[in-house]
Design a binder for these strands. Sequence first.
DNA 1: GTTGCTGCAAATCCTTTGCAAGGTT
DNA 2: AACCTTGCAAAGGATTTGCAGCAAC
Lengths: 144, 144
Amino acid sequence: MRSALATDSDLLNAIEDRGYRITSTRRVIAGAIEESPDGFTAEQICGRVPGVGRATVYRAIKLFHEVEVICKMALPDGAPRYAVDTGGRHHHHTICTGCGAVQDFRASTIERVLKAIEADVDGQITGHRMEIYVTCQTCLASAD
Amino acid sequence: MRSALATDSDLLNAIEDRGYRITSTRRVIAGAIEESPDGFTAEQICGRVPGVGRATVYRAIKLFHEVEVICKMALPDGAPRYAVDTGGRHHHHTICTGCGAVQDFRASTIERVLKAIEADVDGQITGHRMEIYVTCQTCLASAD
DNA sequence: GTTGCTGCAAATCCTTTGCAAGGTT
DNA sequence: AACCTTGCAAAGGATTTGCAGCAAC
């Protein structure tokens, strides 16, 4: 029965809904991800799931990203960082360059601007990427 | 005399102004970059400067980026792409996901929005990244 | 003549892939 | 039973680094 397999994990539910299997390994990885409210890197997850192969972690992250339950973003140097995509509606993120903490960020103004921009652009807009880099309160405080 | 050494290359002038040396190798690399109106990747430049070591090309690109005469951006998959930063004032780019062509893009609205956002953000904004992905006219046409 | 730059090759980092074994439906 | 997943190790690609020789100032 499917309901018996359902978990309280949005991540696992999402992949199950798309026909991927729920395995014990994926449960562990999903758990590690969901314990990362401030975002995470692949390497951080690897460190939190001893015994699970690095490749499996990367495959799982790619899977979660594919089914759109985690967002992928980039630090200023281009290094990838991920965050659980709670909610669902399109949004952007602020990333602390000190500690990497990610916060959601929804500004309807930006969406409106992007729509307006479409007219000025030579070609057809297919997507966009936007990240706001910050020094978070915690890092600001500890720098004093 | 400095004026005798000055070139018509903005790239070379920029590094010279910061105390870096102008060498024949850097002239060649700068030339290859300036022949790339649509942006370029490190690998593309390597291909256009036979005889110059890959490491030197990467070092030069990093240097030009450091003195802010080229911009670094990212394709949807995170792969880096560069473009000459003519002008100077802050701007963004559209990148064609088909051919990689980069175009400048200056929307004062965006800057205004970003400034407004500052109030809503938890922390201090230190920077941002924004790329608009498009299918350019050329690619649209050839897809027909 | 200093000091910085270059090329080569090796090293590194991050991520992906091949494959045989084991798990899930 | 059939097919998906996993772990390991190896491959892969992109960028960096050490170092000795060469070039610019």
